[in-house]
Amino acid sequence: MLNPLQKQLLNDFQQDFPLSPTPYSDIAKSIGASEQEVLDALQELKKLDYISRIGPIVPPNKLGCSMLLAMSVPEEQLQSVAQIINQFQEVNHNYQRENRFNLWFVLIAQNSSHLEAVIAEIESETGFKTMRLPLLADFFINLGFELDWDD
């Protein structure tokens, strides 16, 4: 079970993480713990895989060129098509979703011509057309994730 300090560290420092020489000491002061307690708790959370890392999130299309794509693939071919797609290093994530468009993946490329080339290769190697869904506007300001400990 997570202790109150761990819960607080998971919930409260997704965005207001101090960019200072001693961030963990600053966090400790702000929540009334010692630096060592904060370091220990975070290392434990990392070890238990509750935290993937402490670091930056870069919005899409700021560094490089990204696009969401969807495919409609017969169920029995889904696994093999997904495997072909996953081999491309430009694929950031790839999910099966419950819909007639059942495969959804995001590509990140160096620029738009690189992106187009990868899409063409994926379509040719899988034999399926993609539906292209570039980003027009991002309404989200806060990417933090509010955790609910109740249930």
Partner: peptide, 14 residues
């Protein structure tokens, strides 16, 4: 250019 900087949690694990 950095949208946020901080703890990146694993939703699934939580």
């Amino acid at each position: 250019l950095i949208k946020r900087f901080g703890v990146i949690v694993r939703h699934q694990r939580l």
